[in-house]
């Protein structure tokens, strides 16, 4: 777009006016860039402020205890900050959520993109959007007040456990998984589908053998984004996970209560105090930093994976 305009300008404007125009354009561009950078600076600020308060924790207590011990006693003498069980708790509910959201989400996305007629698809879209729109505190309220008693009636000892949270988080992650993987499936062109049908493959064979492998990286990105949503969720786990800092026995026992990073930050911030400069305050920022880094990593991987797919599809 730039070329025709500048050539036109050079036709009618003096060199000085041209300079002024270039200068103002340059300034305007710079201003826009500066405003745009707010979001970027925001990320850096977040990283900086979280890291600034997280580093003292590692200086005070080192790495080993935090990552390897399961003794989480932040408020008694002597204090112990073994967060392993909390990491495991976060991991467990995220795994559970992924187990719920990934198969359901990918199946739903396949169905939406290739099986259902257009009209039905339009009707299903709002359902997904509604699932995405419901506030997390409403999900948490449902998990605590409605879902936990249901689970208990089904025979669980306590209704607020990893299973409860996993299912709810899975439902919350579904919209992300469905919409991102549907996009990925749509990005695979008609040619592949038509080629496969022409060779006599059924729809299932076409999708599973041709389309899904071609869109696999996009689907992976979708699942990663879903996992990110589940891992970062606070209210549901705070209200309904039971908050017990333990590694379930055996580790995959979803019927036991667990504690997650996000819930620990939300729940413990009340006592942690940076006035007294205690490790207790900084440990929460250390957890925040771990969450942040993990989410950054997930995000970068998913972007990378998507860009690979884009390149691959272009190449073909």
């Amino acid at each position: 777009m730039g070329t025709p305009r500048s050539s036109r300008q050079s036709l009618v404007m003096s060199a000085r006016a041209n300079l002024a125009a270039a200068l103002s354009r340059w300034l305007g561009n710079g201003l826009l860039l500066a405003i745009t950078s707010v979001a970027a600076i925001g990320v850096l600020f977040i990283l900086f402020f979280i890291a600034r308060d997280a580093v003292p924790f590692f200086q005070l207590r080192g790495f080993k205890e935090f990552f390897t011990s399961t003794h989480w006693y932040p408020s008694q003498e002597p204090v112990e900050f073994g967060a392993l069980s909390i990491f495991v708790g976060s991991g467990l509910v995220t795994l559970g959520a992924a187990l719920v959201a990934a198969p359901l989400g990918v199946a739903a996305a396949l169905c939406l993109s290739d099986v259902l007629p257009f009209g039905v698809r339009q009707a299903v879209k709002p359902v997904i959007e509604m699932l995405a729109a419901i506030p997390s505190v409403a999900y948490g309220f449902f998990a605590l007040v409605v879902f936990a008693p249901w689970l208990q009636r089904l025979g669980a000892i306590t209704g607020t456990n990893a299973l409860n949270v996993s299912i709810i988080l899975g439902i919350m992650a579904l919209p992300t998984v469905v919409s991102v993987s549907e996009d990925a499936l749509q990005a695979v062109g008609r040619e592949l589908r038509e080629g496969s049908y022409a060779l006599g493959a059924t729809r299932a064979e076409t999708l599973l053998r041709t389309i899904v492998p071609a869109a696999s990286s996009g689907i992976l990105a979708a699942v990663l984004l879903g996992i990110m949503r589940a891992l970062g969720e606070t209210m549901v786990v705070w209200m309904a996970s039971g908050n017990a800092a333990q590694i379930p026995d055996p580790w995959f026992n979803f019927l036991e209560p667990v504690r997650t990073l996000t819930a620990t930050i939300a729940g413990d911030m009340g006592e942690a105090d940076h006035v007294t400069g205690s490790a207790r305050y900084h440990v929460l920022f250390a957890m925040g930093l771990c969450l942040l880094l993990f989410c950054f990593a997930c995000n970068l991987i998913s972007e990378w994976v998507v860009s690979i797919q884009r390149r691959k599809l272009k190449g073909e």
């Binding site: 979001a39 970027a40 925001g42 990320v43 850096l44 977040i46 979280i50 997390s136 984004l225 990110m228 891992l231 970062g232 969720e233 606070t234 996000t262 930050i265 939300a266 925040g288 969450l291 942040l292 989410c295 950054f296 997930c298 995000n299 970068l300 972007e303």
Partner: peptide, 12 residues
């Protein structure tokens, strides 16, 4: 950066 900001957990 923008997409990373979107992925920052709300509690953070």
């Amino acid at each position: 950066c923008v997409s990373t900001l979107a992925g920052v957990p709300s509690i953070v």
